[in-house]
Simulated assay, not measured.
Amino acid sequence: MNISPILTDIKKRKFQPVYLLHGEESYFIDVISDALEHTVLNDAQKGFDQTVLYGKDTDFSTIVNAAKRYPMMSDHQLIIIKEAQDLKWKDDELLLKYVEQCTVSTVLVFDYKYGKFDKRKKLYKAIEKKGLVVESNKLYDDKVAAWVISYIKEQGWNIHPQAAALLSEYLGTELSKIVNELNKLMLNVPKEREIVVSDIEQNIGISKDFNVFELNTALAKRNAFKAYQIIDYFAANPKSNPLVLVLGNIAGYFTKVLKYHYIIDKSTAAKELGVHPFFMKEYELAARNYNRRKTFTIIEALKDADLKSKGMNVGGNTSTKDILTELIFTILN
């Protein structure tokens, strides 16, 4: 999602009287809320005209009474309700009446995290009409690398697509965690130089030679020696390479390979697969090495490996090394 226009308006001091920031991805909620907290009032004014409340410790009567006050030292007063999901929203009639005739000098912000606000409620529609509603959705796995590239560019750096993909493979979709790691990278890599895979290894602790990204590449190339080297490393370092993460990444990779087989216009494949064009040669190679029938077999083998990792459908040893060795053998043969 693109929150830049919202942040631009805040920077220009074009404030809304009510903000409802809700959704499963807390990162965008925090960015907008923090921007308001750092812009609406200066440090001297905050002692008089800023109020921070927490959902579990307050109620709508307290919030509305505060919102109806006029600022003392500024043109605005700012009220932020953190963890607003903990409010008793069944009793929101008082807030609804306030929103319908809200105080223009008040900026009222609800940080409603880890879930979506009920869009059927009258209050939701009232805030949409009088203020601003922002739904902060989690990124899909295949969108994270592109978001990393975009975020880095906004800060004035550049990152190689392979490095962005490696980060997204290992850090998942939690954007706050990803941003923390990216900020570390930018402290250690000069602006004039592109961030590459070796920077990830040195600053974040991900091995550039023994990771799921390299395992998928080895499988695409049918490089058995490299593939078995990597799974030996995984077995020796299980905390850094959890089996569930490894299996999930391989499954995601071969799902894309299967999808590639069914794309009629291959010129649109990068967009269809949700990957950077840089990686298309590898997917083309993987598709040549694994036809449709074989790819279906691999996906079935991955399902079986997943069951074994959970102690189900067990027929023999279920150590990380044994499960991965059997899986890689099935893929390559």
Score class of each variant (00 low, 15 high):
Ser74Pro: 10
Trp89Val: 01
Thr325Tyr: 15
Asp304Phe: 12
Phe278Ser: 11
Ile264Asp: 10
Ala287Phe: 02
Glu100Gln: 15
Leu187Asn: 11
Met186Tyr: 10
Glu174Gln: 15
Tyr98Cys: 04
Asp304Cys: 02
Ala251Glu: 07
Leu243Cys: 01
Val246Phe: 10
Ala165Gly: 08
Leu324His: 13
Tyr140Thr: 05
Ile63Gln: 00
Ile195Asp: 04
Ser240Val: 08
Ser33His: 12
Lys138Cys: 10
Tyr140Asn: 06
Trp89Lys: 01
Thr62Asn: 00
Phe296Arg: 14
Tyr170Asp: 13
Ile204Asp: 05
Val109Phe: 00
Lys191Gln: 13
Ile206Arg: 01
Met312Tyr: 15
Ile331Gly: 03
Leu302Asp: 06
Glu272Cys: 06
Phe279Ala: 13
Met72Val: 03
Thr297Tyr: 15
Tyr54Cys: 00
Leu324Ala: 11
Glu214Leu: 12
Lys153Thr: 04
Ile195Leu: 02
Lys121Pro: 04
Ile178Lys: 11
Leu307His: 05
Lys56Arg: 15
Glu192Ser: 12
Val196Gly: 00
Thr51Phe: 13
Gly47Gln: 14
Ile230Val: 04
Lys259Ala: 11
Glu93Val: 06
Ala269Gln: 12
Lys184Met: 07
Trp157Tyr: 14
Thr318Cys: 12
Lys68Gly: 07
Val134Ala: 00
Ala35Ile: 15
Gly316Asp: 01
Ile264Asn: 09
Arg293Val: 07
Asn211His: 07
